[in-house]
Computed example of a mutant assay.
Amino acid sequence: MLSFSLEDLTVKQQKKLLIGSVIPRPTALVSTQNKDGVVNLAPFSYFNIVTYQPPVLGVAVQRVNGSMKDTAINIVNGQEAVVHIVDRENVELANQAAVNYPPERSELDLAKFELVNSSQINVPGLLPSKMRFETSLFKHVIIQDEEEITADLLLLKVVYFHVAEEIYQETYIDPKKLDPVARLAGSDYSYIGEVFALERPEFKGEMK
């Protein structure tokens, strides 16, 4: 086995080891809105559940030369976002939303999603989407590498759930019908492959 200290690797090499091994990563498409009402879209794979009570999602937004990206700015300022699960049906549109537009221009100009009003927040959701979460900002965590601020971790509390009927089965989500897209490294993505179950072991002894 090869072993490396941080000092052995450049930042780029560290990134490659992380994104090439922490896979597959769930992908989210996040819609936000700036102070002028412009809707911003951006896909993220540094995304996951943080806790279910309260229901909190985490999205990490990398900074560019120390500057916050539009998604982070809009969430910190507006306190709201809609998080969509990227699936086979909308992955091509989600990829279009990765275009590097200035704040005054919406990615909707290229990624032709249909806007849909949210139920409890001002930021609109997107169609097509089989699963989306209306969220409010729970906590903003600034990530630093020594003195340099490198990322914004946004903890988002879910305030409303939207689920397509075809994927919903008595409070459970059918993963094959959701058909989510997972992020690998580089330009690579994947779909769900083989699904198997493992029962959690139980301790049969006496607690001391």
Results as ranks from 00 to 15, higher is better:
E206C: 11
S118F: 08
V56P: 00
T27Q: 07
A60R: 01
Q79W: 02
K157C: 14
E148F: 14
P55Q: 08
E80Y: 05
V22T: 07
V59T: 04
N117E: 15
I75N: 09
L18F: 15
R63V: 07
I85L: 06
F113H: 05
N117Y: 03
T32A: 05
D174Y: 06
F161Y: 15
K69V: 11
V50N: 09
E170F: 07
E206P: 03
L2V: 05
Y52P: 05
A182G: 15
R88Q: 12
F133W: 05
E92K: 09
G205T: 02
Y189M: 10
N65M: 11
T10H: 05
N117W: 01
I142A: 11
E170S: 14
N74F: 03
T32D: 03
K12Y: 12
R88H: 09
N100A: 13
E114K: 14
L127W: 00
Q53C: 08
E104V: 02
V30I: 12
Q53D: 14
M131G: 01
F133G: 04
K16N: 15
E107D: 06
A97S: 12
R63M: 10
D87I: 01
T71M: 07
N65H: 11
A164G: 07
Q53I: 08
K204R: 13
F44V: 12
A28I: 01
K176W: 04
F196P: 02
P128G: 01
F138K: 07
P201N: 09
I23V: 15
Q14Y: 12
E165W: 08
V39W: 00
V163Y: 09
T32W: 03
V38P: 02
L57K: 04
A72Q: 09
V76E: 12
L115A: 13
A97N: 03
Y160A: 14
L110V: 10
V64D: 15
R200L: 15
L57I: 12
N90W: 04
Y172T: 08
G78F: 06
A72Y: 08
P55W: 10
K204W: 10
Q120G: 02
P175W: 09
Q96W: 10
K130G: 01
V82A: 11
R88P: 00
R200A: 15
G186K: 02
I75M: 11
I192S: 07
V30P: 00
I23S: 06
Q13P: 10
P26T: 03
Y191G: 14
L137T: 03
E7G: 06
L153S: 11
E134I: 13
T10R: 03
G66H: 06
E206G: 14
V64R: 15
V86Y: 01
L6E: 10
I149G: 00
A185H: 09
S136T: 15
I149Q: 06
L9A: 08
N117H: 07
L2T: 02
S136N: 13
P124V: 13
D36S: 13
G37Y: 04
F203V: 03
S119G: 02
I73H: 01
P103T: 04
